[in-house]
């Protein structure tokens, strides 16, 4: 039986409100599916869902968020075969190579899951001020992060841009690879069954060039990852739009999704809060 691939917004799987879909083919050009083509309205709905989910997700304990991310990895493992088939078809990889990519993607969720309750100690600090004050700095999630996911790496790349944002308590609106959206939607189905609260991750399939400008200029989005934008001029336009509310912007860059990811995407979506209190009797 074939599956209908839909959007994932606020924990539900709607079709695009625009009613549009587009043909997704495999790497050899053979028909795979009709994917929903997300519109401006879908992007806005997704931002509303992400904002609504932020307080609760950000308010959870780090331990709990870590467990939820680990659960994502567990549930992905159960769908290993499906992911491998989709990655293989989408990216034109042999099934054994696709399996390796799925393994790496699952490992990446586990790696990021472990960061949840370590970030504050690695990134935060106690500050020895010159006076009778207790002064400490803690990292906190920036808020709603828009992610224009990589066009080439449909699952490992997507995982590598969503996980570092949500592990610290941000919520995400992701636009998947345009030509390779199927693993993204299956990842949405994993989210829906992994204790990830609705709205924490929202996945739109469609064109980053079409939806990106609405996310970049949206005043309730706090940060944007331009990773999936291939044309430098387009990236510049989006960065300009993002300045309207001073979004934290991650510019597109050469990425090696198989490499050690380091902390830069984790810290990109963190604010540092410094708290002072007098010391005295």
């Amino acid at each position: 039986m074939r599956k209908t691939y839909k959007l994932y917004i606020g924990g539900a799987f709607p079709r695009s409100e625009s009613g549009r879909s587009y043909v997704v083919s495999n790497a050899k050009g053979k028909f795979l599916a009709n994917a929903s083509q997300a519109s401006r309205k879908d992007a806005r709905d997704a931002v509303v869902a992400a904002r609504k989910a932020f307080t609760g997700w950000h308010g959870r304990t780090a331990y709990n968020r870590g467990q939820v991310l680990y659960r994502i990895a567990e549930v992905m493992e159960g769908r290993h075969q499906q992911f491998s088939a989709e990655v293989s078809a989408s990216e034109g990889l042999s099934i054994s190579k696709a399996r390796a990519v799925v393994d790496e993607s699952i490992d990446r969720w586990v790696w990021y899951a472990g960061w949840a309750d370590k970030l504050a100690q690695v990134v935060g600090s106690s500050n020895p001020v010159a006076g009778p004050y207790f002064d400490f700095s803690l990292p906190e999630a920036t808020g709603v992060v828009a992610v224009l996911a990589p066009q080439d790496s449909s699952l490992l790349g997507l995982t590598s841009v969503i996980a570092p944002a949500i592990v610290s308590g941000n919520t995400v609106v992701a636009v998947s690879s345009f030509e390779r959206p199927l693993p993204a939607i299956t990842l949405g189905e994993v989210m829906a069954t992994s204790d990830v609260p609705g709205g924490v991750v929202n996945i739109l399939t469609g064109s980053a060039s079409e939806v990106g400008p609405w996310l970049a200029s949206h005043m309730d989005v706090n940060a944007i990852d331009l990773c999936g934008i291939v044309d430098p001029e387009e990236a510049t336009e989006l960065e300009i739009a993002a300045a309207d509310n001073l979004k934290r912007v991650r510019r597109p860059a050469e990425e090696d999704w198989s490499a050690d990811q380091g902390m830069s995407r984790l810290t990109q979506y963190l604010e540092l809060k410094t708290v002072w209190h007098p010391i005295g009797v």
């Binding site: 500050n127 001020v129 010159a130 006076g131 004050y133 700095s137 809060k273 410094t274 708290v275 002072w276």
Partner: peptide
């Protein structure tokens, strides 16, 4: 907010982000 002063205000220090 990036800086929260509790029972004090407008304190600054080179060690404090």
């Amino acid at each position: 907010a990036g800086v929260v002063w509790a029972n004090t205000f407008n304190r600054f220090d080179p060690t404090s982000p």
